[in-house]
Simulated scan of single mutants.
Amino acid sequence: MTKKTYALAGLGLTTLLLASCSGDNVEEIQSAVGEIDQIHGNIVDEMNGLSEEEMNLQTTFDEALASDDQMSTFADGSAPVFENITSRRDRIETISSLREDFESQEEIIADYDGESLSGEELSGLNAKIDEFSGQLESFTSNYETSLTAQEDYFTSIGSEDATYDTFSNGITELNEQTAANKEELVQLDGSLVEVKDHITQVQEMIQSTMAENE
């Protein structure tokens, strides 16, 4: 996934313009959209970090194999690959928490009943967040399953009764799970772009509304 930099466009420049719209709840909507934009950026950062750590796993695994011919660090869970798994699991938990934050801000937007802002555009943003949130929930659940499988595999190859089949068959299974995760990542990447487009459209609408009420 290509890392992108996102900015909260103009949020600090329009506070005084909100006075005439305060009765229409525009300020609260602006704040919610700003939070959504920030959460979106945080998710992008976590997803990129997850991808980077996943790419490092192979190198970490190869180094562990080269330095531990008895596989004792795999058996006792001290091999660096387990630290890599823990780090990625922490990122998955963070992403899940960010998804919940997304939904909290979505509820604020859904409650808007004023007339200054376009209900259609707000609903469009919420619909896109709903779609993305569902994709993200599926991804984090599947990724957590794959992390557990990786943990079990690395432990199994350190056991006394491990065989070549233990090593080979496990690698095949993990590769299949990784391929499935990557397919979901491609979908998520596209959805992140679409969510950002909707955020930008709503922010521009809010700016236009405030300008009209100067």
Rank of each mutant, 00 (worst) to 15 (best):
I129F: 05
D130M: 10
D130I: 09
D130A: 12
E131R: 13
F132A: 13
F132E: 10
S133A: 07
S133R: 01
S133E: 03
S133H: 03
Q135E: 11
Q135I: 08
E137Y: 03
S138W: 13
F139H: 00
T140V: 04
T140N: 03
S141F: 03
S141L: 04
N142Q: 12
Y143L: 04
Y143A: 03
L147P: 08
T148H: 08
A149M: 06
Q150K: 06
Q150T: 04
Q150H: 05
E151C: 13
E151M: 13
D152H: 01
F154A: 09
F154K: 07
T155L: 11
S156I: 01
S156R: 04
G158I: 02
G158R: 04
E160F: 12
E160W: 11
D161T: 03
T163W: 04
D165N: 01
T166F: 08
F167H: 06
F167L: 09
N169R: 13
G170S: 09
I171Y: 02
T172P: 05
E173R: 01
E173S: 06
E176I: 12
Q177V: 10
T178D: 15
T178G: 15
A179G: 05
A179R: 07
K182L: 11
E183M: 12
E184P: 14
L185C: 11
L185V: 11
Q187T: 14
Q187F: 10
E194F: 00
E194A: 00
E194Q: 02
V195K: 03
V195M: 04
K196I: 08
D197P: 02
D197K: 06
D197T: 06
Q201F: 08
Q201Y: 07
V202L: 08
